[in-house]
Design a protein around this nucleic acid. Structure first.
Length: 305
DNA sequence: TGTAAACCCCGTCATCGCTG
DNA sequence: CAGCGATGACGGGGTTTACA
């Protein structure tokens, strides 16, 4: 349950109350009486509206398949997004934090990367390390297991400008035959994970602890297994190339959706946390209002003993 | 200690809604 | 209207927990 500590209630001035949530989280509650607030629990009415709108606009919805689709939609119709709900909440209540439209670097993302320049791409290697490629070609490699900036390495590529036509595009890391990890970056270069740290070239940041080191090389021979390289659209002719392009697009879409799902779940957790905090706050408010009501009752109708 | 249930996390698919 | 991001749903795999 929720425990309340340090509640110094004074009439007229808003008192700060610490609310201890079941999860151990502490919430600061300021003031008892606030303006009426919308319920944090959204009824499923919105879903009905959505379905009705769809049914109205679709005039050719007579076939069974479409009807089935509508039924399914009715079942699966979704609530408004967490971000919208939370932002609506936060616009009404100053205490509720907003989920930012762009990156909110609170949790879920690699902590090491969050402190650096905003990367344009973040990739995760098969060993769980993160590689962020920022604007201007800076490569940041971080180990999620290490904390702080200890696990962070920054690399700067010398010729990291716009890739030439038909150049390679980063797809994902892969394990090469010799056990090292390779990472392809724009400009037909390869970031290769060394097995021995002493082999790190001078243009790389020094490896710390047991962090692996990486080299930027020109791609040598054949691509490692599993790496799909992008070709310029104009060079696609054969069905095999078309198939490869389709596969590449699919891999890219899956990768993006994977990241989107992670981010979505992070936001959902944040949203649930926010709702829990709000419940705790409202419970405290409710309790205080009841107490206040009892006090007023006592004042207005004193007992005659 | 084995096992089933509950729970959590993740990847993928389908779909919606927005935007250029 | 195509492309893309967001998100609900689903299923698989790992972990935890209660119980015989």
């Amino acid at each position: 349950m929720v425990s309340v500590a340090g509640s110094g209630t004074g009439r007229g001035s808003p008192a700060v109350t610490l609310v201890q949530l079941p999860s151990g989280q502490t919430v600061h509650v300021q003031g008892v009486i606030q303006t009426p607030q919308p319920s944090v629990i959204h009824s499923p009415q919105i879903q009905t509206v959505q379905v009705a709108t769809i049914a109205e606009t679709d005039e050719s919805a007579e076939t069974e398949g479409v009807i089935d689709s509508h039924k399914r939609r009715e079942i699966l119709s979704r609530r408004p997004s967490y971000r919208k709900i939370l932002n609506e909440l936060s616009s009404d209540v100053p205490g509720v934090p907003k989920i930012e439209e762009e990156k909110s670097e609170e949790e879920g993302t690699p902590p090491n990367i969050a402190t650096m320049a905003v990367p344009t791409s973040i990739y995760q290697t098969s060993t769980g390390q993160y590689i962020a490629i920022a604007q201007g070609g800076t490569i940041q490699i971080s180990n999620p297991g290490s904390d702080g900036v200890q696990g962070l390495q920054a690399l700067t590529m010398t010729n990291s400008g716009a890739p030439p036509p038909g150049a390679t595009i980063v797809q994902y890391a892969a394990q090469s035959a010799d056990g090292t990890q390779q990472f392809f970056v724009p400009g037909s270069q390869v970031v290769v994970q060394d097995e021995e740290t002493e082999l790190a070239p001078s243009h790389m940041a020094a490896a710390t602890g047991d962090m692996p080191t990486y080299q930027i090389r020109a791609p040598t021979t054949a691509l490692p297994q599993g790496v799909v390289m992008a070709a310029s659209p104009g060079s696609l002719h054969s069905p095999q190339q078309l198939a490869e392009e389709a596969t590449r697009k699919r891999e890219l879409r899956l990768m993006k959706n994977r990241e989107a799902a992670k981010e979505c779940r992070r936001r959902k957790k944040e949203y649930v946390k926010c709702l829990e905090s709000r419940v705790a706050v409202l419970e405290v408010q409710n309790k205080k209002l009841i107490e206040e009501l009892e006090t007023l009752k006592d004042i207005c109708s004193p007992k005659t003993d």
